[in-house]
């Protein structure tokens, strides 16, 4: 996985200058990152603004990360969720995943199921996967999907497939594939 140091190196002197302003300035710099760093691809699946936001978060406390997320627009929230697995915060930011999973924005739900979702309890994780199937979010976005999919998730998917079948509606092919895997 990409590290914070790699992102920092790729961003060059501007991020050093921004970090030099101290943690108190992150609340102001974070929302402006798109305008300040642009949206172009930077390195290994990260755009410049996403990378800058990740590095800025590394300068603040978990409480401030939660604050940045709370007042963030969608792009900022997505950047926080993407940065979480890189930050030395343990499981402290799980409430942010839970917030994202309560939304009906497919982008936030998808982002909540990245590598940091390893910290999400199994019950919440199963509900999140089922929510993806329900919302049409491709399951390939779910981190360690086949590894974590247990019998209980299999039973939930089977019941959902039954409901869809009764309504004459299709199941997404990736959900059927996961179900087949659980029933093999």
């Amino acid at each position: 996985m990409t590290t914070l140091d790699e992102l920092r190196g790729a961003l060059g002197p501007r991020i050093e200058e921004d970090l030099g302003r101290g943690p108190a300035s992150v609340a102001g710099l974070f929302p402006a990152a798109g305008r300040r760093y642009g949206h172009s691809p930077l390195t290994d699946g990260w755009t410049a603004d996403e990378a800058a936001r990740a590095v800025l978060l590394s300068a603040v406390s978990p409480d401030e990360i939660a604050e940045v997320y709370r007042y963030g627009d969608t792009a900022e929230k997505l950047a926080v969720l993407k940065a979480l697995p890189l930050l030395p915060i343990g499981a402290e930011a799980v409430p942010l995943l839970e917030d994202a999973l309560r939304t009906n924005d497919t982008r936030l739900v998808t982002a909540a199921l990245g590598p940091y979702s390893d910290h999400l309890g199994q019950e919440a994780w199963r509900q999140a996967v089922l929510k993806c199937v329900f919302m049409g979010v491709p399951l390939k976005a779910v981190h360690r999907l086949t590894e974590r999919a247990d019998d209980e998730l299999g039973a939930m998917l089977r019941a959902f497939a039954h409901e869809r079948h009764a309504a004459g509606r299709d199941m997404p092919p990736d959900a059927l594939a996961l179900l087949a895997l659980k029933e093999a």
Binding site: Y71, D73, T74, K77, T103, N104, D105
Partner: peptide, 14 residues
């Protein structure tokens, strides 16, 4: 207000 503002920069654009 802040929940409303969040909606104007989050949910509604979506």
């Amino acid at each position: 207000f802040t929940d409303y503002f969040d909606s104007l920069i989050g949910w509604e654009p979506f």
